[in-house]
């Protein structure tokens, strides 16, 4: 499964980077979203895959019983998901306003600070 996920990560990265290199604003944002998914999946996979053993401590126990999915990458990714959503929302509004002011979806027409 790890090999398969590595392939998935590669495809996500390739798609994200390709979309970010487009001149269209919307494609740039889609690329950004794909890239953050790819990064999250990379962290998740390299932390080690443990099927169906979430890091939840059973009632009556005081510690996790092995084997368990590593909680630390999960905490990192949770933060990353939320932050990338914030970035995404801001970028969407920023590009919406930029397209509105510049009257175009073309990044090449946004090369200077003059409107």
């Amino acid at each position: 499964m790890e090999n398969l996920l590595a392939l998935v990560i590669g495809v996500l990265y390739a798609a994200g980077i390709y979309m970010m290199l487009r001149r269209s604003l919307v494609k740039l944002i889609i690329g950004l979203a794909l890239l953050s998914n790819a990064a999250n999946l990379l962290i998740f996979t390299s932390g080690g895959l443990v099927p169906a053993r979430p890091p939840l401590i059973a009632r009556g126990e005081s510690a996790l019983a092995a084997p368990f999915a590593d909680p630390l990458p999960q905490a990192l990714i949770l933060t990353a998901i939320v932050i990338s959503f914030g970035v995404m929302a801001f970028a969407l509004v920023l590009f919406y306003r930029a397209a509105e002011e510049a009257g175009a979806d073309d990044l090449d027409r946004l090369t200077s600070t003059d409107t």
Binding site: N3, L5, A6, I9, G10, V11, Y13, A14, A15, L42
Partner: peptide, 13 residues
């Protein structure tokens, strides 16, 4: 992009 994706897949492995 394909080169970068390939490298990231390798990195994951």
């Amino acid at each position: 992009s394909i080169a970068a994706g390939g490298m990231m897949a390798y990195l994951a492995l």
